[in-house]
């Protein structure tokens, strides 16, 4: 692992973020305010949670495309367990999160036990889990949650949106785990060379199983927060969120081939995307212009990072 090159990409990205913040602040005086920035934190929590888990998955050289569908499934189950089966809402949410985590575990089993490449396995479960969400819900929404439930998605704790606390806590814990624990090093080792890791006695299969389970768990927690934020459940929730999460992860410098990447990079990548979406909108750029610019930034950031990193020999 080349620690230097890692730091270089993140420094570069952080510089881009600062530049973006400054430029956007000059474009609109409503951009760089505490309330606006905190509000952006609220809006990016779901994709943030998923992207952090995705960082681990991609660092092993894998990918999880089914997260959006797991999000939809858990959202639907939260509503169905509570409304149709009659569980108290906290238990309904926990039960739904459990099922979503098991859905992630299912991905892990298909990938590790059956040896199906992650992209294929999660492409298949992407269709399956979304289908289950639609079938179980019969396309009906569940609404009318009790008021306390909205604390999670729509209220503040100590002046900061509730879910932002969760995102920050998860980001800190995840970056410590990835950077400083044996387990984190195992993740990088698998991504750098899976065969060698296996021969050197690392528990490759167990680690991968745990990661896909965690990815399912992250998508499930994101689902409950999402339901609380928008106060309804629909089976099409979270469709396409996997690409947003992957964009943040690769923008953050995680190699899609595995072996390198940091949670910090992912978080900076997330903030950059969110800042662009929000700031450009405030500056009067329309949504279609904004997504074009984000696409260009993604390519240019990785391109620039490759150019600066002269020793660009790995692929």
């Amino acid at each position: 692992m080349k620690l230097k090159s890692l730091i270089r990409h993140e420094t570069f990205l952080a510089l881009m973020l600062v530049t973006a913040l400054i430029v956007l602040a000059f474009q609109s005086d409503r951009f760089f305010t505490v309330s606006n920035l905190l509000n952006q934190g609220r809006l990016m929590t779901e994709v943030g949670l998923i992207a952090i888990a995705m960082t681990f998955v991609i660092a092993t050289g894998g990918i999880d495309l089914s997260v959006g569908s797991i999000l939809g499934l858990v959202a639907i189950l939260t509503g169905v367990f509570w409304n149709n089966i009659g569980l108290p809402l906290p238990f309904a949410a926990i039960a739904a999160i459990f099922v979503g985590t098991m859905a992630g575990f299912g991905n892990g089993i298909i990938i590790t036990r059956f040896g199906v490449p992650p992209l294929i396995a999660t492409l298949a479960t992407l269709a399956l889990y979304r289908g289950l969400a639609e079938g179980i819900s019969q396309a009906r929404s569940v609404r009318g949650y009790p008021d306390w439930f909205y604390v999670l998605g729509q209220r503040d704790v100590l002046g900061v949106p509730t879910q932002l606390w969760i995102l920050m806590a998860v980001a800190v814990i995840a970056s410590v785990i990835l950077a400083y624990t044996t387990w984190g090093r195992t993740v990088y080792a698998i991504g750098s060379n899976e065969v060698a890791s296996r021969f050197s006695g690392l528990s490759v299969e167990k680690t991968k199983l745990a990661l896909y389970t965690l990815s399912g768990f992250a998508a499930s927690v994101a689902a409950v927060i999402f339901v609380s934020r928008v106060s309804t459940t629909r089976s099409d929730m979270g469709s396409g969120i996997e690409l947003d999460a992957i964009t943040a992860v690769v923008l953050g410098g995680t190699s899609i081939y595995g072996g390198r990447g940091t949670v910090l990079g992912t978080v900076i990548g997330l903030c950059l995307i969110q800042a662009l979406k929000n700031g450009l909108s405030l500056a009067g750029v329309k949504g279609d212009g904004t997504i074009m610019l984000i696409g260009a930034v993604l390519i240019l950031a990785i391109l620039a990072s490759n150019i600066f990193e002269r020793s660009g020999t790995r692929n």
Partner: peptide, 20 residues
């Protein structure tokens, strides 16, 4: 508006316009 009929994109857009 959003480029896909997506509840989340629409919410985010409206939120931005409130701020603006």
């Amino acid at each position: 508006g959003p480029s896909k009929a997506n509840i989340d994109d629409q919410i985010t857009l409206i939120d931005n316009y409130i701020t603006s």
